[in-house]
């Protein structure tokens, strides 16, 4: 079985607004507003319209201390919310 991959919507399909400690993300395809905290906006930017695996993301974000489980949990949560797609 191949590794789970994740993909975020193209950058043009999300609108971001900084709200002090949080970021409001409007997802155009669903019309749903998500309130997120860092590093979610960076993850969305990195994965915009690209299928990436956990390994890819770790490389991209240089996660040396290896909080791989935390990252995977966050991605799954984003997938359940419909903000990213999981395959």
């Amino acid at each position: 079985m191949s590794a789970t991959r994740y993909r975020a919507p193209p950058a043009a399909d999300v609108v971001l607004a900084d709200l002090d400690e949080l970021v409001a993300v409007f997802h155009r395809a669903s019309g749903i507003t998500h309130l997120v905290a860092p590093p979610v906006p960076d993850l969305l930017a990195a994965m915009a319209a690209r299928w990436l695996t956990l390994d890819d993301l770790e490389r991209e974000f240089e996660l040396v201390d290896g909080d791989r489980d935390g990252l995977a949990a966050m991605l799954d949560e984003m997938a359940i919310a419909g903000l990213i797609e999981r395959a």
Partner: peptide, 19 residues
């Protein structure tokens, strides 16, 4: 227009769930 967006999104979510 918003209703249509929500309806199509619901279909997309069903597609993902039933993959």
């Amino acid at each position: 227009l918003e209703g249509r967006r929500q309806a199509l999104w619901e279909a997309e979510m069903a597609r993902r769930a039933l993959r």
